[in-house]
Amino acid sequence: MRRALLAITGLAASTSVLVVLKGSPGATQVAQDLPRTPTPVAPGSADPAPAEGEVAAEASAAATTGPRPSRSPSRAPSARPSSGSGSDGGGQTRKPSAPRTTTKPPAQPTTRTVTGPVVENEYGNVQVQIVVSGSRIVDVRALELPQETAQSDQRSEQVNGRYSGSGGQVVERQSADVDTVSGATATSTSYKQSLQAAIDRAN
């Protein structure tokens, strides 16, 4: 009889303890801290579903850090060729053409022939012709000299030899200021007069 009473009393005490444990929040916390049985995963399936604790941790981290900013995809640069003057329809850039330099050959001096007037003296007539290239006398010719006598012919040859031609005194000095031939003063003077008139006409 005594043993039965003790058993009944112990049963009642254990029942009270269980009721108290179930109603207290600490018991709930203990129950939550108990390890959960992992959810079985079928073979060949994807990664196992996250446990409730992991879901709660991820939700807490997302709430703390906030949503991540989304990146908009960068646009690729346009591949269309520019329609400027430096490119053609095929998209190839044209190289600027080098400026054309036209080198003109140096102008050749104009060659002119100028004839002086006929100058008369006591021995005959004298007339001189000059060839001018640009502004320079390059040749001198005696078109007419006194040749009536042998003496006049000789003096005329002396004057012509000293003054005329491309190597005479006229071309050398580029003027009518030449030396008078001794013994042929009249012919020399007439020659200078016709020569000076031709030079004046050329200028």
Rank of each mutant, 00 (worst) to 15 (best):
V55A: 05
S45Y: 02
A49V: 13
A57G: 03
T28E: 14
A31R: 15
A59N: 12
R36V: 02
G53N: 09
T37Y: 10
E58D: 08
R36F: 02
A59S: 10
A62E: 14
V30G: 02
P40I: 12
A51E: 14
A62V: 03
P50Y: 05
P48S: 12
E58N: 07
A51Y: 05
S45P: 00
R36E: 02
V55I: 12
G44Y: 04
R36T: 03
A42T: 06
P40A: 15
E54C: 00
A42F: 01
V41G: 01
V30H: 05
A27S: 15
E52K: 05
P48G: 11
A46F: 04
E52F: 06
A27K: 01
T37D: 03
S60C: 00
T37C: 00
D47W: 09
G44L: 02
G26D: 08
V41Q: 07
P40R: 13
T39W: 06
V30F: 15
P38R: 09
A61K: 14
P35Q: 10
E52R: 04
P43K: 13
A56M: 10
A49K: 12
Q32Y: 11
Q29S: 10
D33T: 02
P50R: 11
A62D: 13
P43D: 12
A56L: 14
E58Q: 13
A57F: 06
P38N: 02
P40T: 10
P50E: 12
S45D: 10
E58T: 06
Q32D: 11
P38I: 06
V41N: 02
D33C: 00
A46T: 07
A42Q: 07
A57Y: 04
P48Q: 11
A46E: 07
P43Q: 11
